[in-house]
Nucleic acid binder design. Structure first.
Lengths: 358, 358
DNA sequence: CGCCGCTACAAAAACGATTAAGATGTCAAT
DNA sequence: ATTGACATCTTAATCGTTTTTGTAGCGGCG
């Protein structure tokens, strides 16, 4: 039986069985008259394989539809080309949040183009509860991206202090790579923007106290300081991210002050909607009576009415960078710089901030 | 060296190395004075192991922090406890869409509680481009959930017609399990609802032609028929999902008709915002002058003003069911019913539809 | 007593790849 | 001719499981 006939037979067999009848290196070796070792080397680009043999093997591999068995490779090399992603979605602040799903999507794409797949980390192995770290070890993950979680969770800390390559998003740990959105300058940019439009009485409703929030507060106070603004303490309130109702209430609180602000910075675009509603409910309108800004720059911001002045966080670069840095750390641990990488965003002007005649 | 000392040593070693120094069945076997085979059986609950030995082995496994090596198990058993998810996010209609991220999240949780991890399917293996199917085979995925893709993509069809266990969401294939949102009754419910409120001139802006859209059209025309409504063809327009601008334009088109509708059904909540804006831009208001409904019942619908009357799609049940059905198909292929499962939603009344005095 | 059947374990062969170490052949230099 | 260097390929061990087959011991039964 000649070469071509044999190939046909193989295909027919696989067709018939309905199963793709996984072809292994052994099969290729058999057909090429070489050893499995040679096949492995040829396919992996090692140098001690003759160029004629190499092309013969590679062609045969294509011909036969060879696919690496990832489990076997992982077993032998301890490399899975799988990176874990830890996103927690309590109260819809994880995947449900457009910011994070956009970051995730970009992260996914970068990882995939580099040959890595992503998988979610959770707290069980088989049907037994475990820790995040154990789950990662069980799956032999090459590395982990952590985002959108309670970073003081003991299980998260265990993961961060493990020997696994880790990249965190929007939170900085010592001696770990962190990719963070530029919350300091982002908030600062908003302050300076509304200041330039004449606003002096600027209030800030921020989210729950997290690393992100701390940075936004720093950005806020620093910018105000540089502009010579004295912000009364009652202008700075703790709200809740992604909670239009709560933020709406706080907006009303602010507007009922004896000396109300002319502009209110809200924790994010979504909760800004609550602000808009609350203001409208008081018979006032945006931006004529009160100005408002959001944060995030999600699609929503530009389609609501009035569309929001906000600070766009570059989710694409954030996700891509996180993936790229993690892979760098995995593949070249010696040279990877353990540092904090700040991703700048961009002020996005809408119609929610009025020009104030001074 | 006694038992306790030995245990300590192990722990110290792993601490020092910084590496968790994976302990294998071999280590347990050594310490328990049994063979690896026995360890394997004990840990996997086989019957031919003495109960004393069994508990000794299990305790030791816990003690030493044993974790199954998933790669080795996968290699031997061809089961990875990994299910693939195919979500495509062209033009932000995948993960960026709250509907799908909610489905994904629910799917993830159900899979995880059953001991399965989820991973995204893409089109490369290593750094070479391949098909979705090849990717699944390369990763030895136990099964696949397909959602939110162009279901006529040849690569998707290849996957669907492969021998892999497959569950599709919102699209039905022959002899495959499909989990679909009840678009027929959902749209019907909206029609009946606005009819009950007195509306007779009801327009429908639907999304691009997909299986989902077809069902909604069926639901629309069927309900209208049952109610004895004659819908003029110019009342039914093809819009674009998740596109407020385009849908806004179409709303204006409808309202400029000589005999405009009193109520407009929009393709989803997000694009309904475009409808609201467009109406406002014409100097009209919702619901006083025109009534509007959305679809999806995402969080947004209830926070905008006026909040939307919409049809809530039960993303939680959708995702959970998809995962559960897929796992059933994987684990009990003989008894799993290859069928279409319809997940009902719920009409969610807002303030965007007015009561019309007839 | 001898045999059967049972329980409880061990031995060993896989799964499919990687890789160190060894083998072979060729050719140039001595 | 011998040697070494080099290129090219093979052998064989190994990763950590699972699973088939084998076997020792023991009690019961005719």
């Amino acid at each position: 039986m000649g070469y071509v006939e044999f190939a046909k037979t193989i295909k027919q067999l696989t067709q018939e069985a309905g199963q793709p009848a996984m072809v292994s290196m052994k099969d290729i070796a058999l057909r090429c008259g070489v050893s499995v070792a040679t096949v492995s080397k040829a396919l992996n680009g090692h140098q001690d394989v003759g160029s004629a043999t190499r092309t013969r093997i590679c062609n045969m591999a294509d011909e036969m539809g060879y696919l690496t068995n990832s489990a076997a490779r992982a077993l032998k090399t301890n490399r899975t080309y799988h990176i874990g992603v830890l996103f927690v979605d309590d109260r819809r602040s994880g995947l449900g949040h457009e910011y994070f799903s956009a970051v995730l999507n970009s992260l996914k794409e970068e990882a995939e183009t580099q040959g890595y797949d992503i998988t979610f980390i959770n707290r069980n192995v088989g049907n037994k509860p475990t820790t995040y770290l154990q789950h990662c070890l069980y799956r032999n993950l090459d590395g982990v991206v952590i985002a959108c979680v309670a970073f003081n969770d003991p299980q998260v800390l265990e993961l961060v202090s493990s020997s696994l390559p880790v990249v965190t998003i929007d939170h900085v740990f010592n001696n770990r790579i962190a990719v963070v959105s530029d919350n300091v300058n982002g908030t600062g940019a908003l302050v300076r923007h509304v200041f330039a439009l004449g606003h002096r009485r600027i209030a800030f409703i921020h989210g729950e106290r997290t690393a992100v929030t701390e940075n936004r507060l720093v950005g806020f106070y620093r910018a105000c300081g540089e502009l010579g603004l004295e912000i009364p303490p009652e202008y700075v309130l703790e709200g809740v991210y992604h909670d239009p109702d709560r933020c709406g209430e706080l907006v009303q609180t602010l507007l009922r002050l004896p000396d109300p602000p002319t502009c209110i910075l809200l924790p994010d675009d979504f909760s800004a909607i609550g602000g808009l509603n609350a203001i409208q409910k008081m018979g006032l309108s945006v931006p004529e009576d009160v100005s408002v800004t959001g944060y995030d720059g999600i699609h929503l911001a530009s389609v609501i009415h009035p569309c929001l002045t906000t600070y766009y966080q570059d989710t694409t670069v954030l996700g891509r960078t996180a993936a790229a840095k993690l892979i760098e750390l995995i593949e070249r641990p010696k040279t990877a710089l353990l540092d904090r990488i700040i991703i700048p965003g961009r002020l996005q002007e809408g119609q929610s901030v009025r020009y104030l005649n001074l």
